[in-house]
Amino acid sequence: MVGLLVVSHSGKAAAGIVEIAAEMASDVSLVAVGGDPDGGIGTDADAIAAGLDEADDGEGVVVLVDLGSATMNAELAVEMAETDAVLADAPVLEGTVNAAVHAAGSKATLDSTRDAAEEARGMSKL
């Protein structure tokens, strides 16, 4: 099954997003990584790389990020890791929920799960 990694500048935000997505798809490997190495606001490429390993069930990992430097550190972590992983250009909460529900299906692939996350860009909330 495709795994998901949520990367946020806040560990609490990442954990909350994973908590919400897990309500919709409890069988999917959902991992949260957030904050800098000192527990403050920020991101850390080494922690993201470890999160990739944790989220990978053997079919790859879709990575969802919140802001600019999270993207840069996630790209670096993907390059460093041996895990097959792709970044999704999606809103982090809605994209994670969409991707988790999709990944729970038996026909989900790494690319189709990323596509499901990215479909959240056009979702209307009203």
Rank of each mutant, 00 (worst) to 15 (best):
L110G: 00
E119S: 09
E23H: 09
D38M: 14
V2D: 03
S10C: 03
T109F: 00
L52Y: 04
G11S: 12
S106E: 15
A49L: 08
A120Y: 06
S106G: 09
I41N: 02
L110F: 00
D27R: 14
G58C: 08
L76Q: 15
A108G: 05
V18M: 06
G34W: 02
V101A: 12
S124R: 14
A15W: 03
H102K: 03
G35E: 02
A90V: 06
E23K: 14
E75N: 11
G34E: 07
V78H: 13
A50I: 07
V6S: 09
G16D: 01
A88V: 15
A120W: 02
D46G: 13
V97E: 09
G68K: 02
A99D: 02
L93P: 07
A81G: 12
V101F: 11
G42A: 08
T113K: 01
A103F: 06
D46P: 05
L52Q: 08
V28H: 04
V6Q: 01
A103S: 03
L4V: 08
G95S: 11
H9P: 03
D56F: 04
A25K: 04
M1S: 15
D115Q: 15
A50D: 15
G68A: 09
M24N: 00
E94V: 08
H102L: 00
H9K: 05
A45Q: 02
L76T: 15
E19Q: 14
D66E: 04
V28C: 07
D89W: 13
V78W: 13
A45T: 05
L5E: 04
D84H: 13
V97M: 11
E75R: 14
E54A: 10
V33L: 00
I20V: 14
S26R: 13
A117M: 08
K12H: 11
A77N: 13
V33F: 05
G39Q: 08
P37D: 00
N98C: 11
G35F: 00
H9I: 06
T96R: 12
S124E: 15
M123F: 15
A100M: 03
V31H: 04
K107P: 01
S69C: 01
G34F: 04
V33A: 02
P37I: 07
S26T: 01
S112L: 01
A32M: 10
E59R: 11
I41D: 02
S106D: 15
P91Q: 05
E94S: 10
G68Q: 06
T113S: 04
A55T: 01
L64C: 09
I17W: 00
L64P: 13
K107W: 12
V6H: 05
V2G: 00
G11M: 09
A90L: 07
V101L: 10
G68P: 03
G60E: 06
T83C: 09
I41H: 06
V28L: 04
G40C: 09
M80N: 08
V97H: 12
G3R: 10
S124C: 05
E119K: 08
K107V: 15
A74W: 05
S124K: 14
S106T: 15
G35T: 02
A47E: 12
A90D: 14
G11L: 13
E59I: 10
M1V: 08
